[in-house]
Amino acid sequence: MRVETARLLSMVAATITTGLVSGLFYAFAVSVMPGLARTGDGTVIEVMRRINVAILNGWFVLGYVGAPLFTALAVGLHVGEGWRGPLGPLVGALVCYVAAMVVTGRVNIALNNALERAGAGGPVADPAAVRRAFEGPWVRANVWRTVLCTVALGLLAWALALHQVG
């Protein structure tokens, strides 16, 4: 495979996978969490617990892990070109996506795990307190990771445009 073909394919794969993850986080921000906000405490806890189990599947992992891997591959394939081409936006996209992964790991996943542990083995003693500890911080962190992934997606689109011009 020619280097130019590999460069283009890695950027396309990075853009698609980043777009999928960005769209997932956006969907939570504009529909799932606002919809859950209109329900009872027990419903929020139960639904989020089920979502946290259901999302751990191969399709999610392909996008979530594929995005930084394909972006890193694209960065590696463009290193020799210098900063005039797509390298700058590719590095920016990788930084933004990794930052979103850090937010996800440190906040969203930590809160998901705490939600799972709440009332483990039995009913949740105080669903309102569990919801308060979970919902606000989770939603704020999700907005941050949505913004970071959307910026990464925009940078990848910019990199593709620069690749086509160059």
Rank of each mutant, 00 (worst) to 15 (best):
V91A: 14
W144F: 14
R38F: 01
V103Q: 08
R132C: 04
V3L: 15
S31G: 07
G63V: 08
R145F: 04
F60C: 08
V32E: 07
V44G: 05
W158E: 09
G42I: 00
V91P: 12
S22A: 15
G82R: 10
T17S: 15
I45K: 02
R84Q: 14
M33R: 07
I55V: 15
I51R: 00
V103T: 13
L87W: 02
T146H: 03
A72E: 07
G105R: 03
G80L: 11
H78E: 12
T17W: 02
A152F: 02
V75P: 03
W59E: 12
V130F: 07
A54Y: 02
G122W: 11
L111F: 06
E46I: 00
A100P: 09
G35T: 05
N52T: 04
W83N: 08
V32A: 13
G58R: 08
G23S: 08
L162N: 06
A54M: 11
I109R: 01
A37I: 00
T43S: 09
A100H: 04
P127V: 06
A157G: 15
L155E: 11
T15W: 00
E46N: 12
V95E: 04
T39I: 00
R131H: 07
I45V: 14
G58K: 05
G119V: 13
V95C: 08
W138G: 10
V65W: 03
V151N: 10
A125Q: 13
A29E: 12
L156Y: 00
G92T: 07
V12P: 07
G23W: 00
N108S: 13
M1R: 11
P89I: 05
W83C: 07
G82S: 11
T39W: 01
S22V: 03
Y26K: 01
G136T: 12
G80C: 11
P34A: 09
V61P: 00
L36E: 03
T104M: 05
